[in-house]
Nucleic acid binder design. Structure first.
Lengths: 345, 345
DNA sequence: TTGTAAGCGTTATCAA
DNA sequence: TTGATAACGCTTACAA
């Protein structure tokens, strides 16, 4: 039994009013008689009427849709949390959130090429990707609002929620220093695509924090593992990381790892090779994801769901034509003390 | 600099052809002269033309959007994987995937109420929620295709991808039996909402498998923890689970837990109370999520990304008007032997 | 192969 | 407070 579309016109006929009255009544506009509105609502219910979003959008110019641009995959801890947070705020307000993945920098460029004249969404949110100047420029010229999330630069965005990982790294370095560590390193993880992710900038921030806190150039290292495509498997990448770490002389006694998702298996790998954590090697992660608390990882806590809620609220305000009271918010991550850090021997 | 919308008409003017020719040329239809097409494409590029999806949809009746209905949150291992898998297939085919969350059974009903006359999507995918008969009926009467994923019933769906957790439970029980366990239990986890999730049906399946393999009624237990709202925190729920388990006499020597996400912290909690795993208690999880391999959990492996890809391909075929060659696929989960199971003492 | 014109289901403007 | 009517930007017969 195929139900053919019930239009506003059918409701109008059923209620004995005009199409425009139905539209007004159902959308809750004022200047509609109470009895008329009731009549219309009943007719609408009886006929199971639903607005055609396409027709509404076409006529009104509002799409009731916001695009959420993410890097590589929707099933990572960070990205899925961002989606969830955005959904929680946007959905009750009547907006669909439409995720899209940039994937490669080439496809990201394509996305931005299509953006300006793309009247298919009312707003665009960007999570964890670092845009280049050209892309920021495109955002600036957009007629719809854009908000950035954990993007290192706020350039081009009408609003943003930034993670202050500068402060986080100062905390991390401070902890390690106070625990007596004299040789420390940052371990980046092999990025899946060629996109510049904001988490990748933590390496520089870490080094900077270390130098500022009195570590010498040769006392702080930045281990970079290149791209994921350089390795057959994550396992291989872990082994490379361990090798890089153990080949440094003098060997660092403490490391900070770009994300918990890499830190946790890295610890397992270290232990596999007889390096005790935290006795021989202190490890600080970043994210505080589900794994972290279970395995007792000392890590830097962030809450992407809440950050996304914040960003989505700004987006809502922007789409209403308003101005968020704090367009560019900075969120401070928090160092959590657990069991993978200890005093240097 | 606000760029006002470039329409098909602008391109037509620029290329010196009619609107319909532009439409045909840009959509790659045949019966367009090659030189004309090139002319149009160039004009389109010059003007940065983008189709208005709304206008296209309105005119053609195809929305190029599929709705993905999930239970509670987009940032769980299973649901985010499903979204990712669906996106991988649907997005390259030009479809947006629009996630929506049922949340409560009341809101799920609302969703289904609005479904029949909702011409806003071309197809609907349902993940991990068990529908009731009324809801299945609505699906049947829909003019757009629906595909189910891990829903226990295939009733109402035009296609589905089902997890054969019956077989999985037979495997799990068999392993425990062969390892000499005589008293075993299934541990469900407190569900977040009041929705009937397909994973919750595993309890019955486990009991059934145990009875069939010769366990007596009082040798196999079903520990149910009720709803998440019964507890202040996940921590509390874990403590309740441990208490239930340890108060059974004779105490089970092996358990199967509904999901890894609950099994892993449960193991930590057990150990906290001096119950050694696997020496005193063998534990089998379900899912094989990221945690599982890291902590060495014996578990039942499933691959929701791949399942969703499969489902999405069926959806694509269905939306093309075709019929998938295997409308209702059954995927067999695989028991993975790791370190949380051992022979009964 | 291309153009003309009539929708698609709403919203918005203007009268009534 | 309500009703006509003209958009909105595209697709699709049908004609040329």
């Amino acid at each position: 039994m195929i139900v053919s579309r019930v239009t506003i016109h059918d409701v109008a006929l059923e209620a004995g009013v005009s199409d425009s009255t139905v539209s007004r009544a159902l959308r809750g506009l004022d200047r509609v008689d109470d009895s008329t509105r009731r009549k219309v609502q009943e007719a609408s219910k009886r006929l199971h009427f639903q607005f055609s979003r396409n027709a509404s959008s076409l006529a009104s110019g509002k799409t009731m849709r916001v695009s959420l641009l993410l890097a590589d995959s929707l099933n990572t801890w960070f990205d899925s949390s961002v989606l969830q947070g955005a959904y929680e705020i946007l959905s009750p307000a009547g907006y669909d959130v439409v995720p899209s993945l940039a994937g490669t920098s080439e496809r990201l460029d394509g996305f931005f090429d299509r953006l300006p004249s793309n009247g298919n969404v009312d707003g665009i949110m960007v999570g964890s990707i670092n845009l280049n100047a050209a892309q920021s420029n495109i955002l600036k010229q957009l007629s719809i609002p854009s908000v950035g999330l954990d993007s290192r630069t706020i350039d081009g965005f009408d609003a943003s929620v930034l993670l202050d990982d500068g402060q986080a790294m100062i905390d991390a370095v401070g902890l390690l220093k106070n625990m007596g560590h004299r040789h420390i390193a940052f371990v980046g993880w092999p990025a899946p695509g060629d996109l510049q992710l904001s988490s990748q900038l933590r390496a520089d921030t870490f080094i900077k924090a270390a130098l500022e806190q009195g570590f010498a150039d040769d006392e702080v290292h930045n281990l970079s593992l290149g791209k994921a495509s350089d390795y057959r498997s994550k396992e291989d990448a872990l082994e490379a990381a361990v090798a890089q770490l153990l080949s440094l002389y003098p060997r660092p006694t403490a490391i900070c790892v770009e994300t918990d998702g890499f830190a946790v298996p890295l610890i397992a790998k270290l232990r596999h090779f007889g390096i005790r954590v935290p006795e021989d090697m202190s490890v600080i992660g970043f994210d505080d994801n589900d794994l972290a608390s279970v395995v007792g990882l000392t890590t830097i806590h962030q809450n992407p769901v809440e950050m996304a809620r914040l960003a989505a609220r700004k987006m809502l305000e922007l789409m209403r034509g308003g101005q968020p009271d704090e367009p560019h918010a900075v969120v401070r991550p928090i160092l959590m003390m657990r069991g993978t850090t200890a005093a240097a021997r």
